[in-house]
Write a protein that binds this DNA or RNA. Structure first.
Lengths: 343, 343
DNA sequence: ACCTAAAATTGACGCGCGTAAAAATTTTGT
DNA sequence: ACAAAATTTTTACGCGCGTCAATTTTAGGT
């Protein structure tokens, strides 16, 4: 309700009848002052609504309360969703998340890291672009800033990696598909940006071997992050060419699968596991929209919350440890199969 | 290649054989120094890779080079896409975008504005939550910080509003649907967060009157940002109850439509404009995934680039004008109809 | 080579706050 | 009530840079 405008902490301290260093102490840790003075400050705070100048504060602290979050492509709902979870967790812990998207481009990723370095964050959660990441840039960044990698691993970089168990994704879908019908053909991009895609192909080959089935891998061309369109076009030509040797398609990820479903619809192929169906389509990730495709997509789901939660936990643990760990750890969460109508 | 670590501008100036004020001038405007000294600085820059401490810089400037971007829900690809465009434009102009999502919650929107105020941005691009926005908070914020509203208007707030012409969206879809088949029933949420939804309903009623058709509005319950699920559930019960009096459904937005398509598929209703189809479904927004629904969605498309571009232009114009305009302007862009298979 | 305008340097102050040391005050335990 | 412990106050410096006034150096024209 106070109408005065406070310019700095000095003024605010005077108005609350305290000295500036005490007030400063309060802002760094409200519990570090006597309860009675804490109350006085908080009352004055309501009355005058003062906030310390964030730039002056950060200039004088070696580590800020900023947490950088970098994702490869924010317009992908998968990353939007995981970023949302991470942001919330940071806020709950009293930190200020700074969200940045690399927009699928190496330059932008490098720029983001540059900007972040200037922001002197307490730590960074980085989901790198993957194959097209500039390894040197990332390595140098990780040397300067405590960094936890998530979603997509780059060997040896960052203090820890948290992600999903790609092999387990594929094991679960392949197992399910094999025991419920024809063995799956694997559908993927030939040059995926994300290294998880390679792990999934390899896991597919191994899983098929275990089942004693002969693998069929269909790799389609395509660059960038327009996975749905790549999947749609690729499916059209693969179907036309008869590349799928069985009636079951296992897509590397849900966004490709969305494109495949679109192509199937356009070709009037019925997708599902019913007797009147032409094809089964399954996939991985449990993209937020997978529930709403037609038919709804059978997929292996990331444990979003676990990945987000553990990433943040790990980072804060590291920050408390002075920004480094004795050794790099890799944590993989198991996905869970979500059976819907498509397979 | 230089291996030294530069601590501050003083050191860097010494290493490049210049004085600190000159170097400071360079960083504020590279063209303000003699070309020869500019070259010297830039050579040293490559060698030693120095960046002025961003906190010290911002502390001493009244207005920073930060541009705040606030969207109501970043996990919605529509906002992710428009945010991506805006970010890029800000970077191109030499500003630093700071992207924030309100996660669909009033508290978060208020927090975001609070944080932004502390960041002393040169300007803010704000897409408010709408109905559930805290008008008082937004008004106070706009008084302190040069703000341009986009996507969703709040009467009188901010220095300008840039959005799409909701009436035109609906006019185009209704016209198209009426002249190509049965007149549409309107499908919407009863209590939409976004004020655009109300404008669309009103435009529907007017358009139907113009066509001499009797309007049918189906409003479904539902809170939050899970529009697809709300649409799916709502469509199931509306279809079961026979609420749709014609064979044509016009959804308030694409995400609801995605839910409707899902429900139709589950009920084995064929959607499209062919003779063997049961229903036509159309919508508004041209959501990034609308191309890939089954069938592909007929919709009216936002002019994303125009909205993003004009918003940024307007903001920078305003910043150059000292942060205020003589009077508030509202700019609406016309959408364009995208006819696909669903209607 | 000389003059002038333009540019760079010197020296200094201020921004708002973190933080440290010493002194003064308040609280706590007995 | 009194000494010890805990907290607050006082005083002062430093962070890295913007910015200003006064001065010196440089560049461009003749």
């Amino acid at each position: 309700m106070g109408e005065q405008k406070i310019r700095n902490m000095e003024e605010f301290a005077a108005l609350s009848g305290l000295s500036r260093p005490t007030v400063s102490k309060y802002f760094n840790d409200p519990d570090s002052v006597r309860p009675s003075t804490r109350k006085r400050i908080e009352q004055a705070l309501e009355q005058y609504d003062f906030r310390p100048n964030i730039y002056a504060v950060n200039q004088n602290r070696r580590l800020t309360k900023n947490i950088g979050i970098v994702v490869p492509y924010l317009a992908d709902p998968f990353f939007a969703e995981i970023a949302r979870n991470i942001e919330q967790l940071c806020i709950d812990t009293g930190y200020r998340p700074i969200l940045m998207s690399s927009h699928g481009q190496t330059d932008q990723e490098n720029d983001n890291l540059d900007t972040l370095r200037a922001l002197k964050p307490a730590g960074v959660l980085l989901a790198p672009l993957g194959r097209i990441s500039d390894k040197g840039v990332i390595e140098r960044f990780c040397r300067d800033v405590p960094t936890v990698l998530f979603d997509s691993n780059i060997e040896g970089m960052g203090e820890a990696f948290i992600g999903s168990d790609n092999a387990s994704f594929v094991d679960q879908t392949v197992d399910y598909l094999c025991r419920s019908g024809e063995p799956p053909c694997f559908f993927e991009m030939r040059t995926p940006a994300n290294p998880n895609a390679n792990k999934r192909r390899i896991a597919y080959l191994e899983a098929m071997a275990r089942h004693g089935e002969s693998p069929v891998v269909v790799s389609v061309e395509g660059d960038g992050w327009g996975f749905e369109e790549i999947g749609r076009r690729g499916a059209h030509s693969a179907i036309a060419a008869g590349d799928f040797k069985t009636n079951t398609i296992l897509c590397s990820n849900d966004r490709l699968a969305i494109g495949v479903l679109s192509a199937c619809y356009e070709r009037e192929l019925r997708v599902g596991r019913g007797p009147d169906c032409d094809l089964r389509v399954a996939s991985h990730d449990d993209h937020p929209f997978s529930r709403f495709t037609c038919p709804a997509l059978t997929t292996a789901a990331h444990d979003y919350k676990a990945v987000a939660g553990r990433s943040v936990e790990t980072l804060f643990e590291m920050i408390e440890h002075g920004g480094r760990f004795r050794e790099r750890t890799e944590t993989l969460f198991k996905p869970y199969l979500v059976v819907r109508a498509s397979a």
